[in-house]
Design a protein around this nucleic acid. Sequence first.
DNA 1: ATCCCCACTGACCTCAAGGTAAGTACGCAC
DNA 2: GTGCGTACTTACCTTGAGGTCAGTGGGGAT
Lengths: 119, 119
Amino acid sequence: MRKRPYVCGLDAAVDVIGGKWKVLIIWALDYQRCRFGELKRLVPGVSEKVLTQQLRELEADGIVHREIYDQVPPKVEYSLTELGEDLNTALKPLGAWGRNRLAALGELSLHERQQLTGR
Amino acid sequence: MRKRPYVCGLDAAVDVIGGKWKVLIIWALDYQRCRFGELKRLVPGVSEKVLTQQLRELEADGIVHREIYDQVPPKVEYSLTELGEDLNTALKPLGAWGRNRLAALGELSLHERQQLTGR
DNA sequence: ATCCCCACTGACCTCAAGGTAAGTACGCAC
DNA sequence: GTGCGTACTTACCTTGAGGTCAGTGGGGAT
């Protein structure tokens, strides 16, 4: 549960996407429905435990859908729900803003590199 | 510094707004430039230490501008930079998504309340 | 005299998110 | 028969973000 009440919508949204790997998971699922192992490869650096955790939280929040195929070896597929796709759409401008920022930072380091190699 | 490199723009954006109170600060500053004490009142629950910290980080990231008036008693005003206003614009759809979510949750708890009082 | 207000700073502490490593149960390939 | 891949779970540990509290130094109100 939550200690502090939500102050605004932004607050509520950040609560959902706040986990360390959640935006990366959502971003990965936008392109394709994924099995657990694929997701692990698409989100480099997550441990299995934490990936499971975050997926369960996203599922509880109604962002991702978990489909279990009764097979051996086990097969589980994750996909975005409609709500999850809405969220992803809402995240697009933020992603664009971040990309601009990355570009700006990239130019800065290019500049620094030029200064260094210029000596 | 950062351990893991940015995977995408969203990643970079979340790095900037990830602090516990940052979106609330940005949201508060969208309406008006603010003195420190005002901000403290607009963001209920933050301690002074953490508010200062987050403001400094936002300043370092070029999101907020800090203007010091050489007065006694001291006066400091915070405002969004152009980059900060861009960020705020990019956050609007996310805020709207969150508001919808809150509305949905509100209806749920209303429903639960009705079930409870109905007994 | 005593208190509050302004905008902080610094020392110390807490706790929960996340990381590590091992275990599970089954099937297939070599 | 040894190891890998599947999708996890469990116990244990680490870390750092954030919380608590006290102090600063002058001015104005009570």
